[in-house]
Write a protein that binds this DNA or RNA. Sequence first.
DNA 1: CCCAGATACCTTGATATCGAGATAAATAGA
DNA 2: TCTATTTATCTCGATATCAAGGTATCTGGG
Lengths: 165, 165
Amino acid sequence: MSMAVMDHVDRILTQWQRQRPDLNVAPMGTLGRLKRLNHVLMRAMEKTWAEYGLNDSSFDVLATLRREGPPYALSPSDLMASTMVTSGTMTHRLQQLEKAGLIERVKNPADGRGFLISLSDKGFALIDEAVAAHVETQKVLVSSLSEEQRSQLDALLKQLLANLS
Amino acid sequence: MSMAVMDHVDRILTQWQRQRPDLNVAPMGTLGRLKRLNHVLMRAMEKTWAEYGLNDSSFDVLATLRREGPPYALSPSDLMASTMVTSGTMTHRLQQLEKAGLIERVKNPADGRGFLISLSDKGFALIDEAVAAHVETQKVLVSSLSEEQRSQLDALLKQLLANLS
DNA sequence: CCCAGATACCTTGATATCGAGATAAATAGA
DNA sequence: TCTATTTATCTCGATATCAAGGTATCTGGG
């Protein structure tokens, strides 16, 4: 017989039920856990990225270029679309990565307005190592779920995401 | 018969499988969806908060005070613990809220180091309205799941969270 | 060919956050 | 009672993000 354990989110819902019994706060519980989980997960993954001198932003860009396959190059616009950030943010990210020598930028010969961003050799080597470590970290982070549970969670998140984005 | 639809995360996983078949990227899919979902959900909820002149940060603090019940007061430390932000961040949040007249701060009579932060009448009225709208928004955001699915998702998130925080 | 509108990217200014370190007050122990 | 340690909060500097607006370039219809 399994004992239901009160967690932080449960306590929040209990408080609301007492203070505002008119509100249906069940969705708040689910979305609250999702937010907290995201927060905790990001913190945990940041540690691995930091071992390679990276953070969420820089890992995100380098990984996007790496998984694209040869010649490991995309335009800033492509990168923006893939990573869900605004143009100002992407400009900033690319400046940092260029300064660190992890990417190279060349004018797009086919479009005078644009650039092509590609992984440098150094950037390729770094992300190739970092992504392996990152995947290991992620494996640990989901290890409290069985493979079937993880897959079920995946399906539910996918369904929810499909109707929002 | 249900057709499996490729979403953005699926395409990322396919790319990785091609480029790095040595990596098990299944956890990456789940955690990637969780991150994207959090991003999309925050964007959606921000719209509701903005209708009341609030954002994630300010809503978070006011709601924490409101659900506490009378006398709607907590110390900055309590608020920090409840909202998972650092002391510097909380100081900043409280400055903004005080400037807006939504909270009041008094020296804690029982502890000369600390303060008590309480909702002003204006703050109480505002959060009481805003939270009702927020709950409505959340209801819409999870409406693509059946009640059973939402509850299942809740349980999985809770289990995952339990082993992390 | 030309021009209006779309597109690609950058710049700027405002915010939110963190981490490290400072200060003041409380507390526990000799 | 003193003192060392802990706790509560703030300050400061660095960074990441967004939104709005600017410039250069492309593109499609007349």
